[in-house]
Amino acid sequence: MKLELPPERSDDRPSKRSVIVAGHPTSLSLEPEFWAALRAIADERKITLNRLITEIDGQRGRRGLSSAARVFALRYLGQYVNRLGSLNPADGNMD
């Protein structure tokens, strides 16, 4: 998976985007890093971003969609790192 995060800026705020969830238009507000992560996950899975968000919506339970998307991205990327092995961020080497 290739995850290209936007440059870190302290003034980045969540951005709202229109998406289609299960055929219905809605909007989702996420930080740029989470939009990038969800795009990378959708690309890896060879599905559209709308399809991925629809899947997240179907599994979110009582959690809000934006929160569910953040948690999904964090868990997915955590599982991805675990499949690769531990990454030591201090030196970039695998343990």
Rank of each mutant, 00 (worst) to 15 (best):
M1R: 04
M1G: 12
M1H: 06
K2N: 12
L3G: 00
L3I: 11
E4M: 09
E4K: 13
L5K: 04
P6S: 07
P6D: 02
P7N: 11
E8S: 13
R9V: 09
S10A: 14
D11S: 12
D11E: 11
D11C: 07
D12Y: 14
D12N: 15
D12Q: 14
D12K: 10
R13S: 15
P14G: 01
P14N: 01
S15L: 12
S15F: 10
K16N: 11
S18F: 10
V19L: 10
V19M: 05
V19Y: 08
I20H: 09
I20S: 13
I20Q: 14
I20C: 12
V21W: 01
A22N: 15
G23S: 07
G23M: 06
G23C: 06
G23Y: 10
H24S: 14
P25W: 06
P25R: 14
L28N: 02
S29H: 05
S29V: 07
L30C: 01
E31T: 07
F34M: 09
F34Q: 10
W35E: 05
W35Y: 09
W35G: 06
A36H: 03
A37I: 10
A37F: 05
A37S: 13
L38V: 02
R39G: 08
A40C: 01
A40G: 03
A40P: 05
I41T: 01
I41R: 00
A42P: 05
A42V: 08
A42G: 08
D43L: 12
E44R: 06
I47M: 11
I47P: 06
L49Y: 01
N50I: 01
N50T: 01
R51G: 03
R51W: 03
R51H: 07
I53Y: 02
I53R: 02
I53T: 05
I53G: 01
T54H: 00
E55F: 03
I56M: 03
D57F: 11
D57H: 13
G58T: 06
Q59M: 15
Q59I: 06
Q59F: 08
R60C: 02
R60I: 04
R62K: 14
R62C: 07
R63C: 06
R63M: 15
R63L: 14
L65V: 05
L65F: 00
S66K: 07
A68V: 03
A68N: 04
A69P: 03
A69F: 04
A69L: 07
R75C: 06
R75L: 11
L77S: 03
L77F: 10
L77P: 01
L77N: 02
G78T: 08
G78H: 08
Q79M: 11
Y80K: 08
V81M: 09
N82E: 15
R83E: 07
L84D: 01
S86A: 14
N88W: 05
N88G: 00
P89T: 10
P89R: 10
P89L: 14
D91P: 08
G92T: 04
G92S: 02
N93W: 10
N93M: 13
M94Q: 11
M94K: 13
D95F: 11
D95S: 12
D95Q: 13
